[in-house]
Amino acid sequence: MNRRALYAWLVLSAVAGAIALLAGGRVWAQLLAPSGPANPEAVHDVPGAEVAPVITPVVLAALAGCVAVLATKGVFRQVVGVLVAICGGAVVVGVTRVFDDVLLLESADLPGASVQVTVWPWITGLGGLLLIAGGLWAAVAGGTWPGMSSRYDRTDRGKPASERSMWDAIDRGDDPT
């Protein structure tokens, strides 16, 4: 059952990161300025990477955290889960700051301009919220999930192996080296 939970978490977190990464690079708003001789372009696209440049690196860090959760066990996995949740929170904060600061400043630069916000910042925020949920899930339940295989881990590191024990290991199908 725990392996299913780990796979479900991995799918949720990877999809959340992909959503936030994809939507973060799209056009988040359009500035509609009155056209005229001083302003020949009536529409100015505002991409998400321009107004919230923190989104891409934070989402990539969260996706790296997804891989780290697979490679760790116990408390370390829970700490990485908290870090993934923090990255998701940074995505949400980055999206909300855009509405508060940047778009209002952009529209103030062009007199008579209006701002039309697209759906992409909302989708980016959704990806951030899903990253928060996935990170908290890993922080709470990640300690019980199975770790990577320890098949090739050596259990008798402190004592030298005798010739007989190495042949016995080979007979069991283990690698004694």
Rank of each mutant, 00 (worst) to 15 (best):
81 G>S: 09
81 G>K: 03
81 G>F: 01
82 V>Q: 01
82 V>W: 10
82 V>H: 00
82 V>I: 15
82 V>D: 03
82 V>L: 12
82 V>M: 02
83 L>K: 01
83 L>W: 04
83 L>S: 09
83 L>N: 03
83 L>T: 03
84 V>P: 01
84 V>C: 02
84 V>I: 14
84 V>H: 11
84 V>T: 02
84 V>R: 02
85 A>I: 00
86 I>S: 03
86 I>R: 00
86 I>F: 07
86 I>A: 13
86 I>Q: 01
87 C>E: 02
87 C>N: 12
87 C>Q: 04
87 C>P: 09
87 C>I: 00
87 C>L: 02
88 G>N: 06
88 G>Y: 08
89 G>M: 11
89 G>S: 11
89 G>H: 13
89 G>V: 02
89 G>N: 12
90 A>F: 00
90 A>P: 00
90 A>N: 05
90 A>K: 00
90 A>V: 06
90 A>E: 01
90 A>I: 06
91 V>L: 08
91 V>D: 01
91 V>N: 02
91 V>M: 06
92 V>Q: 01
92 V>R: 02
92 V>I: 14
92 V>D: 08
92 V>N: 08
93 V>F: 12
94 G>K: 10
94 G>R: 04
94 G>L: 09
94 G>M: 01
95 V>D: 05
95 V>E: 05
95 V>H: 11
96 T>Y: 09
96 T>M: 09
96 T>F: 08
96 T>P: 00
96 T>I: 06
97 R>D: 09
97 R>V: 06
97 R>E: 06
97 R>T: 12
97 R>N: 14
97 R>K: 13
98 V>P: 03
98 V>C: 12
98 V>H: 01
98 V>I: 09
98 V>Q: 00
98 V>T: 15
98 V>D: 06
98 V>G: 13
98 V>K: 07
99 F>H: 13
100 D>P: 00
100 D>M: 10
100 D>A: 14
100 D>Q: 10
100 D>R: 11
100 D>V: 05
101 D>Y: 11
101 D>G: 14
101 D>W: 14
101 D>T: 14
102 V>W: 11
102 V>T: 15
102 V>A: 13
102 V>P: 00
102 V>L: 04
103 L>H: 10
103 L>E: 07
103 L>D: 08
103 L>W: 06
103 L>F: 05
103 L>N: 05
103 L>C: 05
103 L>G: 10
104 L>Y: 08
104 L>D: 14
104 L>V: 15
104 L>M: 09
104 L>R: 15
104 L>A: 05
104 L>E: 13
105 L>Y: 10
105 L>T: 10
105 L>K: 14
105 L>P: 04
105 L>V: 13
105 L>N: 14
105 L>Q: 13
106 E>H: 07
106 E>Q: 11
106 E>M: 10
106 E>K: 12
106 E>A: 14
106 E>S: 11
107 S>Y: 05
107 S>K: 15
107 S>P: 00
107 S>N: 07
108 A>H: 05
108 A>L: 12
108 A>W: 07
108 A>I: 07
108 A>K: 08
109 D>G: 14
109 D>Y: 07
109 D>P: 04
109 D>N: 06
109 D>W: 11
110 L>S: 13
110 L>W: 15
110 L>G: 03
110 L>V: 15
110 L>Q: 15
111 P>L: 14
111 P>S: 12
111 P>M: 04
111 P>W: 12
111 P>V: 05
111 P>D: 13
111 P>H: 07
